[in-house]
């Protein structure tokens, strides 16, 4: 079964065509890494997948639900597709634990007690058990991002979307976050990851997608993309990134 099926996705901002007729399927347990130059539409694509952006046209099916169908409950679909943002977006008015517990409790997925044990467990898996009662503002960037991942996991999603989760971090923080993501991949989470961490892509990705200018230019296994890229633009991009 495919987790995500995108066909003929077009997104315009006014007269600016940002996504130009994209097709993509993501299978169960698959880890897809998207790379490509800045402004090529990677974020926009991810945000269409959970409907933070409304596509101009095209079809997106997540877990069997058609997002553009007026009969499907967007909130219910979003419960199954978590998102991790570049700038974390932790709720500033809540503690670390409350950040994690808010959605499951508000949406009736868990009792408050169950949510507390879940929050504790999740914080342990991301290595932040001691930050349970902390204020998000007191955390470092890497810690914030791991809390954000725990928050997304609390809803027990089938799919996780990552939009440059390590781009806003100091270099020494990147490793901790990537380690958490690697473990998720190993445990079978379906993931779509936009990143510039080529090492992560090589090690974890089932498939690498190179996007440029609103098109999927090339896709394949990490080996295919990194070792034998076919398209000139892919080669050009990888040259710049890897020899930077």
């Amino acid at each position: 079964m495919n987790r995500i099926e995108v066909s003929h996705l077009i997104k315009n901002y006014g007269s600016n065509e940002v996504l130009k007729d994209l097709d993509l399927t993501v299978g169960n347990n698959e880890v897809v890494v998207m790379i490509g130059p800045s402004g090529s539409g990677k974020s926009t694509f991810l945000r269409c997948l959970n409907r933070l952006e409304e596509p101009t046209s095209g079809e997106i099916i997540v877990d069997g639900y058609n997002l553009s169908d007026s009969k499907s409950d967007l909130n219910q679909i979003r419960e199954k597709i978590g998102m991790v943002f570049q700038h974390f977006n932790l709720f500033k008015n809540l503690t670390v634990a409350e950040n994690i517990m808010l959605a499951p409790v508000e949406l009736g997925k868990m009792t408050a007690e169950k949510a507390q044990t879940t929050a504790k467990k999740l914080l342990e898996t991301v290595g932040l058990a001691d930050k349970y009662d902390a204020n998000p503002q007191s955390l470092s960037g890497g810690q914030k991002q791991r809390v954000a991942i725990a928050r997304a996991l609390a809803m027990q999603p089938d799919i996780l979307l990552f939009d440059e989760p390590t781009s806003a971090l100091d270099p020494e923080m990147v490793g901790d976050v990537l380690a958490v993501m690697k473990r998720l991949a190993k445990d079978g989470m379906t993931m779509v990851v936009v990143t510039h961490e080529m090492g992560f892509a090589k090690e974890v990705a089932d498939r690498v997608i190179f996007m440029a200018d609103g098109h999927i230019v090339e896709q394949g296994t990490p080996q295919e993309i990194f070792e034998t890229p076919q398209n000139e633009r892919t080669k050009d991009f990888l040259n710049k990134v890897l020899n930077a």
Binding site: R78, E79, A103, M155
Partner: peptide, 25 residues
Amino acid sequence: SGQMEAARSLGLPYSKAMRRVVLPQ
């Protein structure tokens, strides 16, 4: 705006996201 987006991405409806996350701030 990231606060609202993060809340919505978890499946919280607009009103709940407003009440629990955006309004208190």
